[in-house]
Design a protein around this nucleic acid. Sequence first.
DNA 1: ACCTGAACACCGTTCAAGT
DNA 2: ACCTGAACACCGTTCAAGT
Lengths: 194, 194
Amino acid sequence: MRSDAKKNYDHVLAVARAAVTEGGPDVSMRDIARQAGVGLATLLRHFPTREALFEALLRASLDRLTQRADELEASRKPDEALLSWLSEWVAFALGHRGAVAMMATAHANPDSALYAACAAVHAASARLLLRAQTDGVARADITGDDLFGLMCGLGWLVDLPPFAPRADHLLHILASAILIEPAAGSGRIEATRP
Amino acid sequence: MRSDAKKNYDHVLAVARAAVTEGGPDVSMRDIARQAGVGLATLLRHFPTREALFEALLRASLDRLTQRADELEASRKPDEALLSWLSEWVAFALGHRGAVAMMATAHANPDSALYAACAAVHAASARLLLRAQTDGVARADITGDDLFGLMCGLGWLVDLPPFAPRADHLLHILASAILIEPAAGSGRIEATRP
DNA sequence: ACCTGAACACCGTTCAAGT
DNA sequence: ACCTGAACACCGTTCAAGT
């Protein structure tokens, strides 16, 4: 990319971020182009779809998020790590309106610009889940897909203003479905032997 | 309403149902009007918004759904009733693409045509939840709003094709967060006495 | 009463033409 | 290489004019 184009790109992206923050995830591409003082066709050449634009807007946050999964895995007990991971996810959802809904639809579509990011979040979730399951502190009958789905459902929900205040509580309710309460079998009794 | 207008209304509604089933919840109102052989302005006079159209399309199903809550309350044990209610809700979500998402946004907006329907589902949910809580088989720290929210999150999720096949399993995972497992305290031991 | 065509202000897509 | 205006086919809203 030429340096003047790069500068243009950065400017457009900054304006887009402000426009999305201000007007919500459905601001028209035309509006963004207008606010950036650039032709609509130019905006669409940089970001052919809304998803491509969001991918660029979310990249840094998503990188930080998935990196956080590594840190949690290295520094925390399996159950604590998984719980904190869910908490980080909810914080991400609350901080980026519309992002979760977009990711939920993108995760099954390899052509989406957000596909790779979804796969990374999915993989991180599955890894933390498997670790907790191996340790016996998470339900064994939940798959990585299930967890990713539940995370999307929760993230989408708390994205709705009426439910945002209950985000933390709803997160703990969901966590209680995934994590096995220590009270139930802390003595490591084999559950169902015939 | 004049009888010819009534006939027109019914015809438009039938065509709209087919169009939504065929083309998804975002079919253009123009398309529906075209398929019904009626002016766009006429369609919009009957249904000023997409929500008004959906309210008419969903009314029978929603009535059946909330009525089902009464039946469950009368015929089943509190925990079974609540679990079955969640199951009915998921079936509703799977049967009416886009409905849950619309209801989730409508439930906090008294001006929405779907507001009353949302309130009815919310009330039914809260009633079944309270009954289960009183009986000690549901977590006490969940509110009716929480339950309605979780139901919306789950309903929205299973509306996405990749997650639909796991609907029943996801439902049971969520239920395990709400219902108290009999194994944990079937002997009615007071949980935390200092 | 009930319906409608048409004008309106929008949207994202596409491409030939400019620098 | 990079940008752009303009044409295009769409959308929902609105209203004066028809039966």
